[in-house]
Design a protein around this nucleic acid. Structure first.
Lengths: 108, 108
DNA sequence: TTAGTATGTGAGCATACACTCACAAAGGCG
DNA sequence: CGCCTTTGTGAGTGTATGCTCACATACTAA
């Protein structure tokens, strides 16, 4: 694997990793219906404001979110809504995984 | 966010997180063309055998890979090839991100 | 059986990550 | 102006992650 290929994998991994965290998944799920400010996001996902702020920074740096300032508030929104396609893929894997577990359970 | 919803996000996050690592991305990319044994995977991605073995365990636990034993060798393969749909989504985000960076660069 | 190969795993280490607390900056409102 | 709200960030902490080395296990072949 050459240096350039590795770099590409690293960039892709950064994006995927940004999505692979429960609270950040909840944030994306909450934002799929439209832009929201930090305090409302924090209420929706049930986490500390400062913590949510950091999670938003991660998603911002990964290029998944964008934000604009509106008076006191910072409004965050999905920059690439295609990111939501992720979730159907993940749901497929999850279903397949649970189905396998069920097969194992039934053999007990 | 109730306990059940949180649990669902955690399960999804586990799957996504399993994919969000450069070497594991390389492994999946290598396996998309067919099953392979550990030593060949290690050669392909250019990492230590023991390290590759652990990465394979992560992907196995996430339900993304499956394996079978063939004599001395353990043969790994994609269990849910739909996982490859991930990558086109990621590529979209990456392109969009690079395009934005280019626009910023041109303003300098 | 003995030697060699493929694989997985315990131990240890360095780093990254998620979280909380406290505080500072920016803006709205009396 | 002073006070409150919203947001981001530095510092500290505990845990998770990725990696390597050494070793044990399982199987093949002479």
């Amino acid at each position: 694997m050459n240096q350039q290929t590795l770099r590409l994998y690293e960039m892709k991994a950064q994006i995927i990793q940004a999505v692979g965290q429960p609270i950040r998944l909840a944030i994306l799920d909450f934002l799929k219906d439209g832009e929201q400010c930090v305090c409302d996001i924090a209420k929706a996902v049930g986490a500390e404001r400062s913590n949510v702020s950091r999670h938003l920074t991660v998603l911002l740096n990964a290029g998944i979110l964008e934000c604009r300032k509106d008076g006191l508030k910072m409004i965050y929104s999905l920059r690439t809504p295609c990111i939501m396609n992720f979730f159907s893929c993940v749901a497929d894997v999850l279903k397949s995984q649970l189905a396998k577990n069920n097969r194992v359970l039934q053999k007990l």
